[in-house]
């Protein structure tokens, strides 16, 4: 990956310029550089569409690793609150079936960042319900196979697609053992400011990365599950021993799905 700081001359100029500016928490600041030259800065904290919270100013580091614990014993059969919340949060529900499309095809191809899955132990007959999304693998096969560097793991453990680089080859979809990724087949007329998405790229759960970058505590799916009273999804920092997530993981027996693949997933499941 090209490091954003390795920018050529033109951008070095930009960086120089940036140092000259005072940052303000909110509102409009006007800085006089030279007589007759006025620059204004629209600060983004709390401004429309930035999701509330304080926007991140420093690059993410590996001091945190985000992950989730899903308690399948709490996940209710028939409930899809997490799926709907994810669709709403990321604007997936704004995309409608293209006119004249085959409904069966659309059903198979529609973007899904979370799937509600039911697994049964055929010997005992025990049934578990669980939401399945990108597992945010420490060693992600999707990143290994990506020919362009579009699939990448952020320093904080979030695996995502840089849509500026994705060529839509879909190798990553084939490589992912969890069917976590979707390809956008049709033009996207309506999209959210915080979740840009369009035709020709692959996408998947990014642990509500816009919320992470605004210092918010949870994900849309975890919030929705809690609002339904199920509390099956716990989001947090795996590296912080004091986080509710780490404490729950220490208490509850949990496992990785397909642990035989040794991907060290960031999403863990208990009760399966």
């Amino acid at each position: 990956m090209k490091n954003p700081s390795d920018m050529k001359n033109s951008s070095a100029v930009i960086d120089e310029g940036r140092r000259g500016f005072m940052r303000t928490a909110a509102g409009v600041a006007t800085v006089t550089l030279a007589p007759g030259v006025l620059l204004h800065t629209l600060a983004h904290a709390g401004s429309p569409g930035q999701g509330g919270g304080v926007p991140r100013a420093e690059p993410v580091t590996d001091a945190v690793r985000y992950g989730m614990l899903i308690d399948t014993t709490r996940c209710a059969e028939g409930c899809t609150a997490c799926v709907s919340a994810c669709n709403r949060e990321n604007g997936l529900d704004l995309q409608e079936m293209p006119t004249g499309a085959d409904p069966a095809l659309w059903d198979r191809q529609e973007s899904r960042w979370i799937r509600k899955v039911k697994v049964q132990d055929n010997l005992t007959g025990h049934v578990s319900n669980l939401p399945l999304m990108c597992q945010h693998c420490e060693h992600p096969p999707c990143v290994d196979v990506c020919p362009t560097g579009a699939s990448f793991k952020r320093a904080d453990g979030i695996v995502m697609v840089d849509r500026h680089l994705c060529i839509g080859c879909r190798y990553c979809m084939m490589a992912c053992p969890y069917k976590a990724r979707s390809f956008i087949h049709a033009n996207v007329e309506e999209k959210l400011t915080l979740a840009p998405r369009g035709k020709g790229c692959v996408e998947s759960c990014n642990l509500c990365v816009h919320r992470r970058d605004h210092g918010q505590p949870s994900t849309a799916c975890a919030d929705a599950c809690a609002a339904e009273g199920h509390h099956a999804i716990l989001f947090g920092d795996l590296k912080d021993p004091a986080s509710p997530l780490s404490q729950a993981l220490a208490k509850l027996p949990s496992r990785q799905l397909r642990e035989n693949l040794a991907l060290n997933t960031g999403v863990r499941y208990s009760g399966v």
Binding site: M1, K2, P4, R18, F21, R23, T41, L42, A43, H44, A45, Q50, V54, P55, R56, A57, E58, P59, V60, F152, R154, D156, M160, D162, H164, V209, H210, R212, D213, H214
Partner: peptide, 12 residues
């Protein structure tokens, strides 16, 4: 690049 890879969302 700064936003997608570094999560920086505060700049003008």
């Amino acid at each position: 690049d700064a936003t997608v890879h570094g999560g920086i969302r505060s700049t003008k």
